[in-house]
Design a protein around this nucleic acid. Structure first.
Lengths: 339, 339
DNA sequence: ATGAAAGCGCTAACAT
DNA sequence: ATGTTAGCGCTTTCAT
């Protein structure tokens, strides 16, 4: 059996209350006993039973994060941002992966609520907020939606100014003198559409036209993004009127497109400039350093963390909060004249 | 306040015992009341308090996994492997990141033990088992070390046959006819040394010599692996007697080396064959598809999961268990004559 | 088939 | 400065 408060108490001829008080740093304990207790606690390697204290206090000083998967860099950065913020406030973060499955996500929510997590962060896969609405009894546990917000939810939300992502990249290339800017657009999702809108707006503002054959649809989903990027470039180069600027929905697609262009003898950035999205350190350092829009995942995580801490603080303050973080451009060789 | 068993009981004029029994599937309940209870439970969206039941039963049906970081693909695959196995047995997996910090790892262990996780998996950063030895009182919680084993531990361990990783890659290139096989070796760690030994053994077995200037040391750690791969290739090509085969400690280094070689006009695989380690889907599909040693992380995770389940089953069976999974070669264009 | 009592390990509130 | 009592929500055991 594990060591309990009671054991330490018996060991030192004290009551378990005294031990408990020492462990929680209460001040009405003499320095002498305090030292004695701490010494024995260390020796016996006592680890408190969080189930028990949670049952009594109603809190675990633990927060849960549910991610679609734990292998993606941007998700890991969100996690790191949250972790930094909440651990500074004395909370531990535990992560669950929904393995890209919306039903599994719901199970994870129940597990974390069941575990008495003090707050939840979810990068959700739910289309709508139906699941969350039906459990209003769960309102004790604040939930912060990160990056994606199920339609209808009136919960806290921290997301990305997606339209600006597309705008920043397109505006940059336009200001750099590109006249025909192609866009390897993302999926037909809310995010994909917003970024495409930003791209179009930037072009219009610069007096350019987002000609429809400059926008390449996301192709066969059975292929990886790198290959999709290459194939998109094939299409662009096979037509008359090749672009002098290319923006891709992801860094990997951008790298694929750049590789294909290079292979066909296009000089980068002299003849064609490129920008990606995600600012992936790995991809952006390869070959021709890639200009990319930094989505700001770490910041996203920090804001989400702060929001949860606030929600726990004033339980009465349940006004829905929404924050959008602003993306930032990282300029590199792929879009700048070599000096 | 959250819904409790008591609330449902009062609601239906039953005792909380009855509700509890229904929820745990005990059979001594009439079908009628069972249905009534389940209906109300669903309506009220009851979520059990795991702290309370854990306190009573001593188990949480939860296991913890501690990773150095959650952004790495191979760690994510280990996690997925564990998850698959333990969730099939009714356990939930919760993940904590130690953020590459050995002290933080210790804190995570304490948190998960405190949370009453039924078993722990650790991809550990500890050099020695000192921390784990000093908490024998914690032995109630089985710990499975994955991938890396702190010196001295007598716990369960599932790792990789690292020597074979180096051997497989080198043997493959040797059998393909390469006579001068270079090795961009990893760090001076246990793993790095084992793989280097495997490389040397394979060469010897094929009657080749692991000439010292064919083994390139890991260079400046402030640079990313891609750049290190490129720079290693620069060095190899600047000497007389260029290699006709190159093995790299990671896929990313291999890609860097291949890029640099291509840039300098070396034809791959005709003039130089390449193999990496890790079988990273992203990196292995780029440009020249890269032959790579699949470390078998998913398998690693599954074995670890099974080991933990066994440890929970027979609490008496505390014989230290060790398993090494075998890596596998994935052949691709970088090492095969184009057909 | 249903329920009452006791207690898991801890702490809030109140003695002493 | 230290200790006593009660109870958090659940389940084990034993009655009914």
């Amino acid at each position: 059996m594990r060591v309990r408060l009671k054991d330490i108490a018996a060991d030192l001829n004290l009551s378990k209350m005294t031990i408990s008080k020492v462990l929680r740093g209460q001040t009405d304990i003499s320095e002498a006993t305090k030292a004695r207790v701490l010494k024995r606690v260390k020796e016996l390697n006592y680890i408190p039973n969080l189930s028990a204290s949670s049952l009594r206090t109603g809190e675990t000083k633990t927060m849960g994060l549910i991610l679609p998967s734990i292998g993606k860099r941007w998700l890991a950065e969100i996690a790191a941002g949250i972790n930094r913020t909440v651990s500074a406030a004395g909370y531990s973060l535990i992560v669950c992966s929904s393995e890209e499955d919306a039903e599994s996500e719901q199970r994870q929510v129940e597990i974390l609520v069941s575990l008495q997590a003090d707050a939840l962060f979810i990068v959700s896969l739910q289309e709508t907020s139906a699941f969350f609405d039906q459990m209003p009894k769960m309102r004790t546990t604040p939930i912060v939606f990160v990056s994606h917000m199920p339609a209808g939810t009136v919960e806290s939300y921290v997301g990305v100014h997606e339209e600006l992502v597309g705008w920043i990249a397109a505006d940059h290339l336009a200001k750099s003198g590109c006249k025909r800017i192609a866009y390897l657009r993302g999926p037909r999702t809310a995010v994909g559409d917003l970024r495409a809108n930003g791209y179009r707006r930037a072009l219009n503002e610069s007096g350019l036209v987002a000609h429809s054959d400059l926008v390449i649809e996301t192709m066969s989903f059975d292929k990886d993004e790198y290959t999709r990027g290459r194939e998109a470039m094939e299409r662009l180069l096979s037509r008359r009127g090749r672009p002098d600027g290319v923006i891709a929905y992801t860094d990997l697609m951008a790298v694929g497109a750049m590789d294909e262009a290079s292979r066909r003898g296009v000089r980068i950035p002299e003849e064609m400039r490129f920008a990606g999205c995600g600012d992936d350190a790995l991809l952006c350092q390869m070959r021709i350093p890639l200009t990319s829009v930094d989505i700001g995942e770490h910041d996203l995580g920090q804001r989400a963390g702060r929001m949860a801490l606030r929600a726990i603080g004033n339980s009465k303050d349940k006004g829905a909060q929404r924050v959008l973080v602003k993306p930032r451009l990282e300029r590199r060789t792929s879009s700048e004249k070599a000096r």
